[in-house]
């Protein structure tokens, strides 16, 4: 509910003209509206603090010696133990940078795969007239909701026969084949918002679908492509289930799998180092959030609307 509405509801206010104009100007509010607004802000500040506190506590913990993490709810760090970071970095069989690099390779592959395959499919669904279009579209929407578990075992068998286990192919190739249908839908929604006159004019000029797609559609789709790239980045970076299953060779570990093996190796001893590496793995997501937030919000708004 907006503040102005609240104000109107609580104090109808005198009809205009009865009082000197100056007094009605500015943000004069009734006391109850002021209290309501104050309460709202205090609630939001309190909730935001509770939400972010665990994260800040983790950052503080990554700079504390081990014994100070426990029994300590504060964020205050006595002496900064930056050595937790190199300790954690070198705690596993490979330096942690290796796992970050591995994840970066996978992320790059999945982002490219989704961008190419989903934009092609989205153009067809949004602009082309073909037989069984509605059926195909419905099938595509249903696959968004399909649990990955139903596919994972036969996929594992298939990839094992192809010799793909302990490569990144099982993580990347499906994206090249547009299996992340959510992004097809996101792009279809976006393309529908682009005026048809643009591609129809190009058609009249004799351009084929390939040219319309590459020269007209793709440049206009940049915001949707950015949203796709950002979501794919975050989801792949965090994805644990499929990476746990398809990548078992320690030198190929991606970030989530490496961090999980860290728990096995370090859980009983060095929590500070574990926290330090957890912070390191969250930094890329945080940066993407910081710089790409508007694309994320827009993407959510276009797919979640009614």
């Amino acid at each position: 509910m907006t503040e102005t509405l609240e104000k109107n509801a609580v104090t109808p206010g005198p009809p205009p003209g009865r009082k000197p104009v100056g007094k009605r100007r500015g943000r004069t509010r009734s006391p109850s509206a002021l209290v309501w607004s104050l309460a709202k802000h205090l609630t939001l500040i309190a909730v935001s603090l509770v939400m972010l506190y665990p994260l800040l506590w983790m950052v503080a913990g990554s700079l504390r010696p081990n014994h100070e993490i426990f029994g300590n709810a504060t964020l205050f760090v006595d002496t900064f133990h930056f050595e937790n970071y190199p300790n954690g970095w070198n705690a596993l069989s490979e330096p942690f940078g290796k796992y970050l690099l591995n994840s970066a390779v996978v992320v790059l592959g999945t982002v490219l795969g989704n961008l190419v395959s989903c934009s092609l499919a989205a153009y067809a669904f949004a602009r082309l007239r073909f037989r069984y279009r509605r059926t195909a579209f419905a099938v595509m929407l249903i696959t968004i909701m399909l649990p990955i578990h139903v596919l994972i075992i036969p996929q594992y068998v298939l990839y094992a026969q192809l010799g793909w286990i302990n490569t990144y192919l099982p993580l990347i190739v499906p994206k090249l084949l547009a299996t992340d249908a959510f992004f097809i839908f996101l792009m279809v929604q976006f393309i529908r918002g682009i005026p048809r006159e643009l591609d129809e004019a190009a058609r009249i000029d004799g351009a084929g679908h390939a040219r319309i797609f590459f020269q007209i559609m793709l440049p206009l789709m940049v915001p949707a492509l950015a949203t796709t790239a950002i979501f794919t980045f975050i989801w792949t970076w965090n994805d644990f289930f499929s990476q746990l299953i398809f990548v078992t060779e320690p030198s190929l570990y991606t970030v989530p799998v490496a961090l999980r093996s860290f728990i096995d190796a370090q859980m009983q001893s060095d929590y500070s180092a574990l926290f330090a590496m957890s912070v390191v793995t969250l930094i890329p997501v945080f940066l993407v959030f910081l710089f790409g937030q508007r694309f994320l919000l827009r993407g959510i708004a276009t797919t979640g609307g009614k």
């Binding site: 972010l52 975050i234 997501v285």
Partner: peptide, 12 residues
């Protein structure tokens, strides 16, 4: 309020 939902699925 939105940030936690991006991080929440991670192992970290």
């Amino acid at each position: 309020l939105y940030l936690p939902s991006l991080l929440g699925g991670s192992v970290a």
